[in-house]
Design a protein around this nucleic acid. Structure first.
Lengths: 255, 255
DNA sequence: GCAAAAGTGTTGGAAATACACCCATGT
DNA sequence: ACATGGGTGTATTTCCAACACTTTTGC
C-alpha cells in the first residue's frame, strides 16, 4: 500500500476544482489496486429561482459518464469529519460558508463507482441562488431544473432522488425553506417555494393563516419593490423564537 | 412481505463472531499505519420485552472501553454492499434473517475510534425477542433497557440516541412496530409498545379507534391465552393492504 | 381606469380528545 | 363473588378546507 497518495489533511484547501478532480482519479486508481474502500461526500445543492427548484451540477469528467451531469463531491480527507468535508466542498464550489447542510444517506453499492469501490455520503444543502451569482461561470457548473433531468453520472440520480424526497418531507416539519429565499421575503415567494418543492397548489388564505399563526414571521415594515402590481409586505423568519419553542414529541399515529 | 424490509439475499456466513472480532483489530492496525479510512456498519438492534424497549449490546473488547457496552458492528467487506454488511452482522449475532433493517446515519468524526480512522454507518433493526431466545447466551451479549443506560464504548451512545430518536419518529408514520411483536398480538400489546417507545400515555379507546379506522388489522379469530383476566382478541397486521394504500404526499406544514 | 396581485373572515366537516360503563375470564 | 383488564359510544373541541370580495399599486 502506498500511504503517500492518501489525501492531504491540511486546513482549507486552495486547490481549484479542476485540480481536485485530477487528484481524485489517481487516488481512486490506487485505492482500487489496493482493494480499499474509499469514502467520499456528495452534495446535492438546491436553489430556488424563477419559481422552480434547481440543483447545482457539473459535467462529469469520467470517460464512462461523458456529458452526463454529476453532483459536487470529493473524497473525504483523512483528518476531516464528514460534515467538514461537505462544508469544504460547498466552500470550494460556491464560495459560501453560511449554508444549510444536512446529511441524508450513505450509498455503498459495490459497483456504484466504475473506478474503485467508493462509499459516498449524500448531503443536502440549500442555498440562496441570488447570493452567489458570481462564482458559477467557471468549469461546467450549472443550475438545473430538478423536475426535467435525466442522464446523471454514477448513481447520482439515486442520490438526488433521495435528497429531493428528504427535502419534501423535511420542509413540512422544519423551517428549512427560508434558506432558499432572501432574508426578507414576501408571503407570495414563500408560498411559491412550497408549491414548487411539494408540487401542490395551496390556498393563499389558508397558507397565510398557517404561517401567521405559528408566530415566527416578523414584519420588516418594508415592501416589495419593482413589482408591476401592489407590493407585498416583506417578512423575516425569527429563528430565535423557533429555537425556544418547545417541540411536541407526539404527532399522532398515521400511516 | 413488508416492502420496507430490505430483502436479504446473501448466503449465510459461517464466520463466528469471535473470529470476526480478532480480525478487526489486526485490520484496524493496518489501516491506521497506512493512513486509510476504514468503513464499518453498526447495528442498533431493538427488541420489546416486559413492556420495555430493549437494545442488544455486547461487552466491548477494546482495552480503552473495558466493561463498556458496545453495539454490534463490523468492518464492511470489500465486495459487499452496506445493507448486506448490516444483514450479515444480524445473521451472525442473532441467527435471524427476516428482520426489519434500515440505515439511519453515518458517523465520521475523526477520532471516534481509538485504533484508526473509521467511518461507521448506523443501522436500526427491530426484532421480536421471543423468536431468537436461543442464540443469546454465547459471548457477552445482552438485552439492555434503553432508558437506563450509560457508559457505552466509542460514540455508540450517539448512535443509539440517533436510532432511538429515529425510531420514535418513524414508528408514528410507518408500521414498524409490528416487527417487535409476535405475528399475532393483542391491541393491549400494541398500545404498550407505542407507550413505551414514545414515553406517553394514550387513551385506550382512542387508540383502538385509530388503528381500526386504518383498516389494516386483521382479526385472527384467536384469543390471548394464559392471561389472568378476560383474554383479548389477537390481530395480525395486513402488510399487503398497507402497500396498496396510496400515500398522501401532503401532510401539512407544521413546525 | 384597468390589470394584477395583496390582503382579509366565515363556515361546515373531519378528526382528535375526553370521558364512564358493562362484559368476559381466571382465581 | 371479585379482581382484572377487554370492549364499546358519545359529546365536545380543535383543526383544516373551501370559498369571494375589497384594496393597493404600476402602467
Amino acid at each position: 500500500m502506498n500511504p503517500e497518495i492518501i489525501p492531504n489533511d491540511g486546513p482549507s484547501s486552495t486547490d481549484t476544482a479542476a485540480a481536485g478532480q485530477k487528484n481524485i482519479k489517481m487516488i481512486l486508481k490506487q485505492l482500487e489496486s489496493d482493494g480499499i474502500i474509499g469514502i467520499s461526500v456528495d452534495c446535492v445543492i438546491f436553489g430556488f429561482d424563477d419559481n422552480e427548484l434547481k440543483v447545482l451540477l457539473i459535467k462529469s469528467d469520467f470517460e464512462k459518464y461523458e456529458n452526463k451531469w454529476s453532483l459536487l463531491g470529493d473524497l473525504v480527507n483523512n483528518h476531516e469529519d464528514l460534515d467538514e468535508a461537505a462544508y469544504r466542498i460547498l466552500r470550494e464550489r460556491t464560495g459560501m460558508d453560511d449554508v444549510y447542510l444536512e446529511q441524508v444517506k450513505a450509498f455503498g453499492e459495490v459497483n456504484r463507482h466504475p473506478a474503485a469501490r467508493v462509499v459516498t455520503i449524500a448531503y443536502c444543502s440549500l442555498i440562496n441562488i441570488e447570493h452567489h451569482q458570481l462564482k458559477i461561470l467557471d468549469n461546467e457548473l450549472h443550475w438545473h431544473r430538478v423536475t426535467t433531468l435525466s442522464d446523471m453520472a454514477f448513481d447520482h440520480r439515486a442520490l438526488l432522488d433521495a435528497c429531493y424526497a428528504w427535502l419534501q418531507k423535511r420542509i413540512q416539519e422544519h423551517p428549512l425553506g427560508f434558506s432558499l429565499l432572501p432574508k426578507k421575503f414576501s408571503l407570495r415567494e414563500l408560498q411559491n417555494l412550497y408549491e414548487a418543492i411539494l408540487d401542490v397548489k395551496l390556498d393563499r388564505r389558508n397558507f397565510r393563516k398557517k404561517f401567521f399563526s405559528m408566530g415566527l414571521l416578523e414584519d420588516t415594515g418594508e415592501l416589495e419593490t419593482d413589482v408591476p402590481h401592489r407590493p407585498g409586505k416583506l417578512y423575516r423568519f425569527n429563528y430565535e423564537k423557533y429555537q425556544k419553542k418547545e417541540r411536541k414529541k407526539w404527532f399522532g399515529i398515521d400511516f
